[in-house]
Design a protein around this nucleic acid. Structure first.
Lengths: 349, 349
DNA sequence: CTGAAAGCGCTAACAT
DNA sequence: ATGTTAGCGCTTTCAG
């Protein structure tokens, strides 16, 4: 008779390690040794017999039990403000791939820019015994409340500086912004460069703003107009509308957007008004997501090395914690700055 | 002395349910009851005492143990070909939100269009005892090999029809495509409408192709040129280049792209060649991701009700399996078809 | 090289 | 209303 005491309706009792042991005529320990390839050696013939039994029975190890025993899950938690934001989506993909290479899976949680939700997500993932936690904090780095990190290694990505007790990493915000803005000034003779920034409570904006300011200062130029709105296409669009309001808007020579998304929104507003980029205003942005490559005109960007950063984040939580790591961005020249790119389009490999 | 036998370096032994019980002077069962709010009642004063102890000790339940006991994890697995594809990224976000509403977390795996990797992901997530599995198969629906679904409810999203033993759901591919193409014909007098489709091995392409063909047939029009490339921006771009090659390319009046991404790539190729959309060619696509709203010109699309589908997928695996569900798409008129939209831009809420 | 057995932390009978 | 306790399936120490 079937055993009706199963906790939840698991169609039938699953095959366990004990079944395999019985089938193969060995002890459960041996089954464990062959499956995990250690820690004790097993005679080749015994191992073969076990593997055969595993196959015949269709045995699949129960990872929950393993996790309980080991106190770890081979699960990496990722907390981002918005996983549908292309920047985070690309980041998440690379993290998933890096995790997969180490046999880990990725669980993603959205904090929607809410510090309290972020905290709850950290707690919840820590309770799940994730092996590591990677977080892109929507708020200031040092305000990240990681009480729950008791026994979970945490890496803070998109960080603009070290945070004691955590592994942190991020792009060189300042350098990237400076490069982009200097390109505008040096190569295209821009004399006024506006800034399209994000919410001021977000610490990560500072580095990019400073980079912009530095580039200007280096060339003795005054600060251009400053627009501020959220890090989204809609935010960029609103900034564009604001820039263009009035009868005779006074456009700067160029604009630096803190993110691709905002640049895309700006582009939209500019297009609608019949303003040509780069002829009427040049535009450069920070991030370098794929979208920046395909919009029109293609955006000149300070591109973050997402794959390398993803790998570093996973390494920081899985292998060894690290000091703050900063990654140089790469200036990718396309048309929005005014350059004539020789290639019609840079198609990603 | 510290106990050095901890399986992995958990900084110190974590607080367990037993500690709380001792602290509160009750049994572990009672602690369980107050934490889970059942299944047995607990006196209010006792409960308060327990909660206090939990607070004082900073107790956090170990979800691995719970999962082992219960045979389920409150983890939903999602397998997609490419989680950085904006369509899947938006889908994943909505699924994560729907899961979160039920107290579940989402683990995402990429199959990169490989059936074998897809299968491995299914296995691996099933071994993790996920409570449900949602898969967007890169291959044909009926070829989905879900041997591992022994005791895991599976929902197939982006499905074009029922698959026995699985919950399936998807947009009304045919209706959506038909609506979009008919709009081109009826409202804009398009006499030749080309098709930009995806790899033919992908069954989900059939419905959209049929819709295109049906719309044409209804109005006695011949099939326009057919382009075929992968479901990506690069694929769209290549199709655009192909369409335009030669000295005097013979452009159709309009083009229907099976996905936003391909439309974006097409748009890029068209822009580069100085071809105006919609003046020289009109363009409509299927999906309706946010990117379609912000590119230039804004894309007229058959928009999938992603949120509703995400909710349905989660419900199918968490609540009750369902017959095949099809969701109507909504035709969203923007400028790429030739309409003058009254609103300058439809900003998403 | 292999077997026996002790738990990991939790839930939910079954007792009281 | 509360306490006791038997496992869930796995890993690994300790004996053989």
């Amino acid at each position: 008779m079937a055993d009706p005491t199963a906790p939840r309706p698991t169609t039938r009792r699953a095959v366990t390690r004990a079944d395999v042991a019985r089938e193969a005529g060995v002890s459960t320990a041996v089954v464990s040794y062959v499956i995990n390839d250690g820690p004790r050696p097993v005679a080749a013939t015994t191992a073969a017999r076990v593997r055969e039994a595993v196959e015949r029975l269709g045995y699949r190890p129960n990872l929950s039990a393993r996790a309980l025993r080991l106190g770890t899950t081979d699960l990496i938690g990722l907390i981002v403000p918005d996983s549908s934001n292309p920047f985070f989506a690309e980041y998440a993909l690379e993290i998933e791939q890096a995790a997969a290479r180490r046999g880990c899976s990725l669980v993603v949680a959205n904090s929607k820019g809410s510090p309290s939700l972020e905290r709850r997500n950290v707690e919840s993932l820590a309770n799940r015994q994730v092996s590591g936690l990677i977080v892109a904090s929507a708020t200031a780095g040092d305000r990240v409340d990681l009480r729950a990190r008791r026994d979970v290694p945490v890496a803070l990505i998109n960080a603009d500086g070290p945070v004691s007790g955590l592994s942190t990493l991020g792009p060189d915000f300042r350098q990237g912004a400076r490069d982009a803005v200097e390109h505008l000034i040096v190569e295209h003779g821009a004399a006024t460069v506006g800034l399209a920034t994000g919410p001021r409570r977000n610490h990560t904006a500072y580095g990019r703003e400073d980079g912009w300011r530095e580039a200007l200062a280096r060339h003795g130029l005054p600060a251009g107009p400053i627009l501020e709105d959220e890090f989204s296409r809609a935010g960029g669009y609103r900034m564009g509308r604001q820039l263009l309001r009035g009868d005779a808007p006074d456009l700067p020579d160029a604009l630096f957007a803190l993110s691709d998304l905002q640049a895309v929104g700006l582009l939209r507003a500019l297009h609608e008004t019949g303003i040509d980029v780069p002829r009427d205003v040049a535009l450069v942005s920070f991030d370098g997501t794929i979208e920046s490559e395909y919009c029109w005109p293609g955006l000149t960007v300070a591109r973050q090395p997402i794959r390398a950063m993803a790998e570093a984040a996973v390494a920081a939580v899985m292998d060894a914690p690290s000091e703050h790591q900063v990654f140089r961005t790469e200036l990718v020249i396309r048309r929005s700055c005014g350059c004539e790119s020789s290639e019609p389009v840079v198609v990603t490999p």
